[in-house]
């Protein structure tokens, strides 16, 4: 599964959800969906804005965790 490490990066950058939502021009509700890992997909444009705002790489935000091998 894909794990979203957005909250970790946000904590490192000391940025709040509302600030980030305003910076990348998405609603706080949508940002919350992404943070709570309820999102089913992420647009490249959103990923681009996130990476720009948080000064990171897509790989810092998204991580692949092999659930099968963990079992």
């Amino acid at each position: 599964m894909i794990v979203v490490n957005l909250d970790v990066i946000m904590a490192k950058r000391k940025i709040s959800s509302n600030e980030l939502a305003e910076m990348i021009d998405i609603t706080p509700a949508n940002l919350s969906v992404l943070k709570r890992e309820k999102a089913k997909a992420i647009r490249f444009s959103t990923l681009d804005k996130l990476c720009r705002a948080l000064d990171c790489q897509p790989g810092d935000l998204l991580e692949f965790v092999d659930e099968e091998s963990e079992d």
Binding site: N30, L31, V33, L34, K38, A39, K40, A41, I42, R43
Partner: peptide
């Protein structure tokens, strides 16, 4: 629709 709603 659900997929669309949960696309950020």
């Amino acid at each position: 629709r659900e997929e669309n709603d949960f696309t950020v």
